[in-house]
Design a protein around this nucleic acid. Structure first.
Lengths: 149, 149
DNA sequence: CTTGACCTTCCCATTACTGGAACCTTTATG
DNA sequence: CATAAAGGTTCCAGTAATGGGAAGGTCAAG
């Protein structure tokens, strides 16, 4: 099976599939013409990866999950721990986003949105906040870049 | 005022402040020794930027907001539109994350998490989902990279 | 034979920084 | 006064996970 067909089957862009081979998540064999030739196992792995990515797992988590998936003697506890960790991160992000949303929604609601320059949003961004929730005002820029290592 | 003190005042890392100068968000003057010398206006702008970033605005949105902030003849409608756009993106991300969370939480709950290999999480990632919510299973990898352009 | 649809590799761009090297300036101390 | 520590400077590279596009090989059809 060529990469185009695999892309269709898995929903992953061909570019992404090549990248996954690059970082050794999959190792499809090569046909004589140099084309990648994907078998059922490759397809399963890619499907697995696509699902794990869709659930927001980082690539390295996916790698780990894939290893566990292939390891018949795994302990489900290991899988569960990875998943629970990730669940925790998702919850943290949701909390951050909700805090941002609340603060911003207040500002937006207070803004007339007309042709006059007076703007509570800009005021809120320049003045020190008064009664708006801003626990998320520490810099956690939407996706907590390196804070979780 | 030197960069270190500004870093303390604004809560922004010195590296970030230099970066903001690099991309022309601020243009502090230079002292004779080559050090950046920040005045009150620079400090205000950086504080503004820090707050806008904390609310999740992208750098280019921050640039725009900063321009509006400095423009005495702005229309608050312009500001409001930017903020509302962003609010929409935040809502979309929250929705994605919630969908992920729901799916993953179900799987985690079903996993024994012991030393046996049997694992509903891995099963859920490999088999085609049955009754789990997966509207977010299209690939929106947590932060919707290029989908909003 | 050529067109077009595939496939290949390779390199650059993205976002918003962070880390580190190599080097200069200022300040504090023995 | 010498020196070391604590600041500052620039520049280069790396991050996560792709996406875009160039330059070129391969294959099936007309």
């Amino acid at each position: 099976m060529n990469i185009g067909e695999v892309a269709i089957q898995t929903g992953l862009p061909a570019k992404t599939i090549r990248y996954y081979e690059d970082i050794a998540l999959i190792t499809p064999r090569r046909a004589d013409n140099g084309y990648r030739s994907f078998d059922a196992s490759d397809l399963h792995k890619l499907t697995f990866l696509a699902r794990a990515r869709a659930l927001g797992f980082a690539i390295e988590d996916c790698r780990l999950l894939l290893e566990l998936y292939e390891d018949e003697s795994r302990a489900s506890a290991d899988v569960k721990r990875v998943a629970q960790d990730h669940l925790g991160k998702i919850e943290a992000k949701i909390a951050d986003l909700k805090a941002m949303h609340e603060t911003l929604a207040h500002l937006v609601a207070a803004c007339a949105g007309d042709d006059r320059p007076d703007c509570p949003i800009l005021n809120g961004l320049s003045e020190l906040p008064e009664r708006t929730a801003n626990k998320a005002m520490n810099h956690l820029p939407l996706d907590a870049p390196h804070s979780n290592a």
